[in-house]
């Protein structure tokens, strides 16, 4: 049976890297008594895969992992059992059964959305001279009215020119508690992967303002896949086990 689990990663857990989160969940499955399936061989490993690895320093409300289980209790019971063995900074949000024909999360992810904002310790020293209205004006010129936004992405082997206009689906500038929050929804996955910091840097370059990547907290909100030509949250895939 295939199961898709949604979880949050926040607070000081942002310093724990993806591979360690993988090891963390392997132990959580045993602690919670989830009847997870193992591969064969002399060193069997749990059948488990993650949707889109989150880098060190990022937080998220929409992380997903798929597991295979031999048997399962109700979704609610499993969520509670897993939450009972979490550390502060990790929270299980849902546990849903997938259809056997469903592809794994990693291969279906098409899009992710993020909030990006200045970290507390940078807020004072880094606040740009621009207020929200002028930022929105710049944004209109940079994004809304643009036909294409070409950037060169440096990879290990080559350079690649990408059109961000086609890959960034939404870009908004919001205000929350007097803090400017960029909302960015963009293409993610194995084909056209865009990182939010790459897009923001292009925006700052456009404004001729220096962009300090370390100053911004990037918070992933959710991951999406295509279903019937429509983007839906991965949390809407599968069904609750009653």
């Amino acid at each position: 049976m295939k199961i898709r689990i949604r979880f949050r990663k926040f607070s000081i857990m942002k310093y724990i890297g993806h591979l360690d989160i993988l090891r963390y969940f392997q132990k959580c499955m045993r602690r919670a008594g989830i009847d997870i399936s193992y591969s064969g061989g002399f060193s069997p490993h749990q059948i488990m895969s993650f949707a889109a690895p989150l880098g060190v320093g990022l937080t998220s409300d929409g992380e997903y992992l798929d597991i295979a289980v031999e048997s399962s209790e109700a979704s609610k019971v499993s969520v509670d059992k897993l939450n009972a063995v979490m550390v502060p900074g990790m929270e299980i949000l849902s546990y849903r059964k997938l259809d056997d024909s469903e592809k794994n999360a990693m291969s279906v992810v098409a899009c992710a959305d993020y909030n990006v904002f200045l970290k507390d310790e940078y807020e004072k020293k880094c606040n740009t001279a621009l207020d929200i209205d002028s930022l929105r004006e710049k944004k209109k010129a940079f994004y809304d009215d643009a036909k294409e936004i070409l950037v060169t992405k440096q990879t290990k082997k080559s350079e690649k020119v990408m059109d961000l206009k086609a890959l960034v689906y939404e870009f908004e500038i919001n205000e929350n508690d007097g803090r400017i929050v960029y909302y960015i929804k963009l293409s993610t996955g194995s084909v056209d992967n865009v990182k939010p910091e790459l897009f923001l840097k292009a925006f700052y370059d456009f404004m001729n303002i220096e962009f300090d990547e370390n100053a911004y907290q990037i918070h992933r909100l959710d991951l999406y896949c295509m279903k019937d030509d429509r983007l839906i949250s991965l949390s809407e895939t599968g069904e609750e086990i009653e």
Binding site: I12, M13, Y15, I16, G17, D20, K27, R31, V56, G57, V85, V87, P88, G89, K119, E121, N214
Partner: peptide, 18 residues
């Protein structure tokens, strides 16, 4: 945050283990 993101293996310094 700056220091933790700069050093090797920040998990060495934050506690919070199960």
């Amino acid at each position: 945050d700056d220091i933790l993101l700069k050093v090797d293996k920040p998990a060495r310094y934050i506690g919070n283990e199960f």
